[in-house]
């Protein structure tokens, strides 16, 4: 491994301090895709006259064209209508799932952390117990117990992502709570809630928003996997994942019925994760960038900077 190559070629320590004003093309495209999907979901009834549920047994596996701009599937349902209505349920279920994950993971996590050692210890011991189970499997088991349908599905998605959110919350909370300004606020008689909302929340909000942007596409993917396994969304509110799953056995006869939702799903998750990555880069490291501008001249670390932390360890 040629270490020297790294030192010679990588761009350096101090990143350019000027904030980039122009938006990269990938980000603009991603935003356009997400907005398009949202718009499609909202305006579905006006964009197509066909129902996503009506079966036409005379029109099975039709190629795109004519009355059906994107063809029909193995039950003769209009793929275009299903795509539009599917946008609605895909986004709806995933957003609700993410919201539940945050309500449980971040909400309960923050409250427990704010109110002392024991509530947090108990909560995280509980979370630790389910941690060994992969999210998809946990969601699967939860749906087994809760029954299928949009409600249980959303709840199962939320619960299966909650541990991840809780860990991120705890890590960022602890990083902030150890800061001197939190101690200083305590020394001004600042209560736990004051410290939480004035100092901790604003400083971890970036990390949490970023996390949400990362979890949303993963929710969409997990939902589609569950649909594929036959325990996902209900037949009357089809998601894209369900469409792919339903058509996967007829891939030979009606490739369009599977390709359309597949491409839509991949584009949406790609767009969302691109936005998530941009958020992470621009929101999360605010402090680090700030610290760096002050410190980046310090090639020689002043002697004592590292020491007194040890003093309290």
């Amino acid at each position: 491994m040629a270490i020297q190559a790294v030192s010679a070629q990588e761009p350096g320590l101090g990143r350019a301090p000027s904030p980039r004003r122009h938006w990269p093309a990938g980000l603009i495209l991603s935003c356009a895709i997400v907005l398009g999907v949202v718009a499609a979901g909202l305006t579905a009834p006006w964009l197509t006259a066909n129902s996503p549920l009506d079966q036409d047994l005379l029109q099975l596996n039709k190629a795109p064209g004519g009355d059906f701009p994107l063809g029909t599937d193995h039950l003769g349902r209009d793929v275009f209508a299903r795509l539009l209505y599917g946008a609605r349920s895909t986004l709806g279920i995933s957003l609700a799932g993410t919201a539940i994950a945050f309500a449980i993971g971040a909400g309960a996590g923050l409250l427990a952390l704010t109110f002392g050692r024991w509530p947090a210890a108990v909560l995280f011991a509980l979370i630790d117990l389910v941690r060994a189970l992969p999210g998809t499997l946990l969601a699967l088991l939860l749906i087994v117990g809760l029954g299928s349908g949009p409600g249980p599905l959303t709840l199962a998605l939320g619960i299966s992502f909650a541990p991840l959110v809780a860990y991120v919350t705890r890590a960022t909370y602890r990083r902030e709570a150890a800061r001197d300004y939190v101690q200083a606020a305590a020394s001004f008689c600042g209560g736990r809630l004051h410290i939480l909302q004035r100092h901790i929340l604003p400083n971890i909000a970036g990390a949490l928003v970023t996390q949400a942007a990362i979890i949303l596409p993963r929710c969409i993917v997990t939902e589609s996997v569950l649909s594929f396994l036959g325990v996902g969304s209900s037949p009357d509110a089809p998601t894209w994942g369900r469409m792919i799953a339903d058509s996967s056995r007829f891939v030979e006869r009606a490739p369009h019925a599977i390709l359309v939702p597949l491409v839509a799903l991949v584009l949406l998750t790609l767009a969302l994760s691109t936005i998530g990555n941009h958020l992470r880069r621009s929101l999360d490291p605010v402090r680090d960038a700030a610290d760096r501008t002050a410190e980046d001249a310090d090639d020689d670390q002043p002697a004592e900077r590292a020491r007194p932390q040890l003093a309290t360890a």
Partner: peptide, 15 residues
């Protein structure tokens, strides 16, 4: 009574 901390980089909330 008031306290001042060691690290001036951490004693003020950056936001």
């Amino acid at each position: 009574c008031q306290i001042i901390f060691q690290n001036p980089y951490g004693a003020l909330n950056p936001r």
